[in-house]
């Protein structure tokens, strides 16, 4: 149901997304400083770090929602440092947002259809009736079924619970058939049950794709992610597997006090 993306030139293990000397300064204050990051195709890569470490800024830079002050971003070997955010998304590098990003007044089905419209060339026809979009319903329902939202298709997205909104967002993102998914705190504000559910979902969608995620819940990170990059005060502190990273004294120091907050 969640078919792997098509046309991927990268083999598992190749670097699909890389940042070189990535820096973002806000009026002289460096929110992100000289970040070098390599995300390998087919992996689930976590970006963790205390509040204010610059994780979301890195996301904004990588997806071109924010221009970098310095540094290069290479996606599938190409420099995307001058590419617009919408074009980056069309090339298969698709992000989610920290605050759940649904279209609240559209129906659940419509939310997914909006994502399907552009790849299926049904986005600019102002002269055709809305019923033209019915041709997208089968695929939309497939995606909704995969995230267990099929029975909620006719509800307004704003009516969904928080966890279900995140699931809807994932279905919408998957509609683009992305190569690389950047998930910004997919578990934030979720209860235990939802966390398990979404973790399963991510594991499922990660097959044949690459996932880079910002996440606070270290428990989830330890179970889900192959590589972990720890960011603190805008700089990379450590990188490796969960065991390697958690043994690092610098990481322990940076995380002191906050590790207990995450179950």
């Amino acid at each position: 149901m969640l078919s792997s993306p098509t046309g991927s030139a990268e083999r598992t293990g190749d670097v699909i997304l890389a940042a070189e000397g990535l820096t973002k300064e806000f009026r002289g204050f460096a929110a992100v400083r000289d970040v070098n990051l390599k995300v390998h195709a087919g992996s689930i890569h976590a970006l963790i770090g205390p509040n204010g470490a610059g994780k979301t800024t890195v996301f904004n830079l990588l997806t071109r929602f924010m221009p970098a002050t310095r540094g290069r971003i290479l996606y599938r070997g190409q420099d995307i440092g001058r590419t617009g955010p919408a074009k980056v998304a069309r090339q298969g590098l698709v992000r989610s947002f920290q605050i759940s990003a649904v279209f609240p007044h559209l129906t659940v089905l419509d939310n997914v259809r909006v994502a399907l419209q552009r790849p299926r060339h049904l986005a600019t026809q102002w002269w055709r009736p809305l019923s033209t979009l019915r041709s997208l319903d089968d695929r939309a329902m497939e995606l909704l079924t995969a995230v267990q939202l099929a029975d909620k298709a006719d509800l307004t997205a704003g009516e969904l619970s928080y966890g279900r909104k995140r699931a809807l967002e994932l279905a919408t993102t998957l509609a683009l058939d992305p190569q690389v998914l950047l998930l910004d705190e997919p578990m934030a504000g979720m209860g235990h049950e939802d966390i398990h559910h979404v973790a399963d979902l991510i594991r499922q969608v990660a097959k044949g794709r690459t996932v880079l995620m910002v996440e606070h819940n270290l428990n989830v990170v330890s179970q889900l992610c192959d590589t972990i990059t720890v960011l603190a005060r805008g700089e990379i502190l450590a990188e490796g597997t969960y065991t390697q990273v958690s043994a690092d004294p610098q990481v322990r120091e940076a995380y002191m006090g906050s590790e207990d907050d995450d179950d």
Binding site: T63, F65, G84, P85, A86, K87, A89, R90, V94, R95, S96, F97, A101, V102, F103, P104, H105, L106, D110, R113, V114, A115, Q117, R118, P119, L122, A123, T124, Q125, W126, W127, R128, P129, L130, T132, L133, T172, L176
Partner: peptide, 23 residues
Amino acid sequence: SPFGNILAAIRENEPRAISLGYE
């Protein structure tokens, strides 16, 4: 119309529409 549906999406959540690849 299909176009109107995208307009609605942009009005509802512009960053999300961009992240879905819409100019």
